[in-house]
């Protein structure tokens, strides 16, 4: 009994601690969005929903939302397609398999800052490695950071390079859980490689993919460091996303209330999308169907 009570106490304690650590800043941010403030130390002034009204009417907010969505969708799509493809290759037995597997997840270990520096090093339109290599063949390249499409594309490419290994690792683990007998049954049933992939591999990876897409979706939509390091939202807000917009408003324009409103709306949008997603694709596949 004593032990039971201790367990309960520990449990409640940890919930409270988590609540304070996670909930505290969240509540504070939401609260800020109802005030007008020029700094964290200055006087707060209650403005009600004015920050939200302004934010919603701001075309930049919607552009940032669209940019974020585009970048996230493209990045997830490529990460998942490449991740599954590479995992399928790595799952076959071949010489040097373990070495290749280890190398393939290396980028995941790089800190984002380092990765972005490397990327800029390679891609820099004036001094980059790519430019000098191409130049030696007499080919010139345009400045990727000068155009919205190429800037967004570069962000997607770097994120694919950085986080596809995460998908590979998860999918490789998922592949191990599919019984080989299912493939044998399918072969006897007459299914070729393509049918085996769609009827056995994909359903078998379903739970893994649902979680991976969920996680990658949240992370990509909330991505700040990568975008800030590569483009700072430029050119002309073409790569501005909700997190960079919130940061810009709060810390560069000293509009704390406006930044908090953007952050809160971003949080609500993401939460809404994720709830719908989980409704459509429950992680526990037993809940699907009947």
């Amino acid at each position: 009994m004593v032990q039971d009570r201790r367990v309960v106490a520990l449990f409640i304690g940890s919930i409270l601690l988590l609540g304070v650590i996670i909930g505290g800043p969240l509540v504070y941010a939401i609260m800020l969005s109802f005030y007008s403030a020029k700094s964290f130390v200055g006087e707060l002034q209650w403005v009600g929903l004015a920050n939200y009204a302004k934010t919603i009417q701001d075309p930049l907010f919607w552009q940032a939302f669209a940019n974020g969505l585009m970048i996230a969708l493209a990045a997830i799509f490529l990460q998942v397609v490449l991740g599954v493809g590479i995992a399928l290759v790595l799952n076959r037995r071949f010489f040097g398999q373990s070495v290749v597997r280890a190398v393939s997840i290396l980028p995941y270990f790089l800190p984002t800052v380092v990765a972005c520096l490397i990327a800029q090093w390679i891609l820099d339109p004036n001094y980059g490695l790519l430019k000098s290599i191409l130049a030696s063949f007499g080919i010139g390249i345009a400045d990727w950071s000068a155009q919205g499409v190429t800037a967004r594309g570069t962000i997607v490419l770097v994120s694919v390079w950085l986080w596809t290994p995460f998908v590979i690792t998860c999918v490789l683990a998922g592949l191990q859980t599919i019984p080989t007998q299912l493939y044998e049954a399918a072969r006897v049933d007459g299914a070729g490689a393509w049918r085996q992939f769609w009827h056995i591999t994909v359903p078998g990876l379903r739970s893994v993919l649902v979680v991976v897409i969920l996680l990658r979706g949240i992370w990509m939509f909330n991505k700040f460091d990568l975008i800030w390091l590569l483009t700072k939202g430029g050119p002309l807000n073409q790569t501005e996303t909700l997190p960079t917009l919130a940061y810009r408003k709060s810390f560069l324009e000293f509009n704390l209330g406006g930044g908090a409103a953007v952050a809160t709306l971003s949080f609500l949008i993401l939460a809404g999308v994720m709830l719908i997603y989980l409704r459509l694709f429950p992680i526990d596949d037993a809940k699907q169907g009947r």
């Binding site: 019984p179 299912l182 049954a185």
Partner: peptide
């Protein structure tokens, strides 16, 4: 073929 543990397609 009928397998020992049936190998039915679970999904």
């Amino acid at each position: 073929m009928v397998f020992q543990n049936y190998a039915l397609y679970p999904q």
